[in-house]
Design a protein around this nucleic acid. Structure first.
Lengths: 102, 102
DNA sequence: TCCATTGTTTGACGACAATCGAACAACAGG
DNA sequence: CCTGTTGTTCGATTGTCGTCAAACAATGGA
């Protein structure tokens, strides 16, 4: 549990990324990370339980959308903007723009 | 069955669009429509059965990605490029680019 | 009118996904 | 140590998805 798995930049899979983004809760997480930068899991104020949110973060992490840094008792999540831009140019920006004003 | 349902431009829903694109078979259909323009359902040479393909076309249609025109015994499908571009600027282009060379 | 073609619908099946409560693990501070 | 905090994992439930075969519908042509 100390070391979290993140796929490499070359392993990012487009269908998996699109699938991860197709859930409203996960899309909201990504929007906030894009707007506010790094955040701990518990600071999103979403209405799901801890277990459900942990599941969504896992889906996002395994799809390569976010990376999670462990520091003490917290997990700080951030968007993998550069990896995503390198692999899928313009995609993240288009999705964020399409998801409405921040 | 004569008149097919297509959502209006304003009704296009981003999670639904991303979900529709997150299946490899459906993504391939979209890629070919983008490359070749209008095509009948049976001309894609995909390995799934008629029933499965019909299901995928329905998902794409109901998400607003394609429109289907009935002519005789054929259903001609085309990408709703302009509606998609109006609602989600840059998204389709980024997805197509990310999905590999045509 | 009969038949072949094209695509949809139905019903079924197995696999997977979203959700939750409860138990667990790791850590920080007293 | 003990305790509270933060987040993960487990087990179970409920629902959805992708897939297929079979039946059906609509059309055009022989």
């Amino acid at each position: 549990m100390r070391n979290l798995q993140h796929p490499g930049r070359e392993q990012l899979d487009l269908p998996a990324v699109l699938y991860a983004l197709s859930d409203p809760t996960r899309l909201e997480i990504v929007r906030r990370l894009a707007a506010d930068g790094e955040r701990a899991c518990g600071t999103f104020g979403l209405s799901a339980t801890k277990a459900t949110l942990s599941h969504h973060f896992k889906v996002l992490r395994e799809a390569g959308l976010i990376q999670t840094r462990v520091e003490g008792v917290h997990r700080y999540n951030s968007l993998r903007k550069q990896d995503l831009e390198a692999r899928f140019p313009g995609l993240l920006k288009a999705v964020l723009k399409a998801s409405g004003p921040c």
